[in-house]
């Protein structure tokens, strides 16, 4: 019998190489969504729509598919080479990722108000 809220979907393990952070991501869920839902912070989180580019990662290992991503942030060559936006990245196996996005901007001290 099904427990309410339980999911029969397969879950994959996502490992962020930079921080060693590991979390589960159900099939059909974008990696960034799975991470933020669990309170993870290893990948910078922004628009969740493939438009802003802050969640850019390189997939070092594993199978996946992606939804539309802004060409401003991921070129066709990069895409072919395993670069993706984590908010548009759906795992099809366990994944190992390296963060390429603009994490440094979030921690760098601002000198002039907003920049």
């Amino acid at each position: 019998m099904d427990t309410p809220g339980a999911t029969a979907r397969p879950r994959f393990q996502v490992t962020i190489e930079d921080s060693g952070e590991r979390f589960a991501c159900a099939e059909g869920l974008p990696v960034l969504k799975a991470m933020t839902a669990l309170g993870g912070r290893g990948i910078p989180s922004g628009c969740h729509g493939g438009g802003c580019g802050v969640c850019k990662v390189r997939v070092l290992e594993g199978d996946y598919r992606t939804a539309a991503m802004s060409r401003e942030h991921v070129s066709a060559e990069e895409e072919a080479g395993g670069v993706a936006l984590a908010c548009r990245l759906y795992p099809a196996s366990d994944l190992r990722l390296k963060v390429l996005g603009m994490m440094h901007r979030a921690v760098e001290a601002r000198r002039y108000g907003l920049v």
């Binding site: 910078p44 989180s45 922004g46 628009c47 438009g51 802003c52 802050v54 802004s70 603009m102 901007r105 979030a106 907003l114 920049v115």
Partner: peptide, 8 residues
């Protein structure tokens, strides 16, 4: 949120 770092 991500007020200053995230935009298109």
């Amino acid at each position: 949120g991500s007020f200053t770092s995230v935009y298109t």
